[in-house]
Design a binder for these strands. Structure first.
Lengths: 206, 206
DNA sequence: GGCATACGTTACCGACAGGTAACATGATGA
DNA sequence: TCATCATGTTACCTGTCGGTAACGTATGCC
């Protein structure tokens, strides 16, 4: 996927450089804080202690940077997910609870702006195919994973349960944008999750 | 709130004109479709069959238009809410179900882009006080209303139930941005709502 | 007719956006 | 020492943005 051109003799891996990394980290931070359309290339480079020219030596365009940003956000998200889930192998119910616990925990951090990928869906119009495809693939995987866990629990209407869990998850992400740190309705997610799982494990409900 | 200046002798009500209405409707449509930052004043005026100069004769600034847009969206939303709820006076449980039925129904329309106010929260940075205050007030009222209905049901942990309902509602709005018409997880909202209400009416759950 | 209202048209402004050219510098390594 | 590479610097291009000035015109009211 990535052409092996411009390979430096040693040091940083495959075409990556120090400024590039600094710029990219800065970009991720600014995109998260102000939205994708709310941050210009110039501002990113300056905030990274560099300049626009150096930016364009590392990134083909702003769109390329945004795509990489979204991919990185997804990568981090799944790492976060896997870490939460890994603590309870073979216990899908506790896995789900751990996910929502971790979400609540993360929502209490001041830098949290909900779901970066989901927020991007608001900003990118439908014709920006590459970006919206990234977001769609991510959301579909969230859905698939939650449904799979619901199935693993042996729940009745597992797909429906998985989807309901996704609604609670995304509801938390969405409301987090508006409500300050610990004050939002997101704290109600975990009890609701437990109730729903109970209902889907004991009997038919909807 | 609105100064009574420039009152025309008769015809359209209090300072409003035909172009103004056309421009405003066009703006609402475009904001919904492409986001607030994704639409320029020029594009709005042109799409409305007018021009920028006429725009600025009716609106003090783009920010003023955006504020009015958000207020209008909120007005329409509560009208929609009240209509759904009014069909079942004195039956709070059915009121909630009617809300989620109406949401699902609306989500199936092609123009639906979830929650306009919530989407705006993604685009406006924190320092734009006037706009983010509008969004926050709206979201707080959603929360208050859902909690109130939960209380009216006589539910245990009514606040928690109300918050959980809000998460499901906003989760539906958020996911609607990504999943096409009827294909998203939003269909799982209503069964989940019923399950949660049942649990909160029968016994303690979480 | 005279006048104000409402609207269209053209042209312009300063600011900033994404993106590029050309050149200077400083470290590295053969 | 000399070439190379990564980076910084300055200047510039084009386009678009929010916003304004000045002028023209159709309508309708008195």
């Amino acid at each position: 996927m990535r052409p092996p051109e411009a390979q430096t003799p040693c040091a940083p891996a495959a075409g990556k450089s120090r400024v590039r990394d600094r710029i990219f980290e800065t970009a991720c931070d600014l995109f998260n804080r102000h939205g994708i359309r709310g941050v210009g290339v110039d501002a990113i480079a300056a905030e990274a202690g560099s300049n626009k020219m150096s930016f364009y030596r590392s990134f083909a365009s702003k769109d390329a940077l945004v795509a990489e940003y979204l991919q990185e956000q997804e990568r981090e998200y799944w790492a976060w997910w896997d870490a939460a889930v890994a603590r309870y192998p073979d216990d899908p119910r506790r896995q789900v609870e751990a996910l929502f616990e971790a979400q609540l925990d993360h929502a209490k951090s001041s830098g949290c702006r909900g779901c970066a990928l989901g927020n991007a869906a608001v900003e990118i119009s439908d014709h920006e195919d590459e970006l919206s495809t990234l977001v769609r693939a991510y959301k579909e995987q969230v859905r698939r994973r939650l449904r799979a866990i619901a199935h693993a629990m042996g729940a009745r209407d597992a797909d429906s349960l998985g989807d309901a869990l996704m609604l609670l998850l995304d509801g938390g992400n969405f409301t987090r944008l508006t409500f300050a740190l610990g004050s939002g309705p997101i704290a109600a997610a975990l009890p609701a999750v437990r109730t729903l799982i109970d209902a889907h494990l004991l009997g038919k409900s909807g």
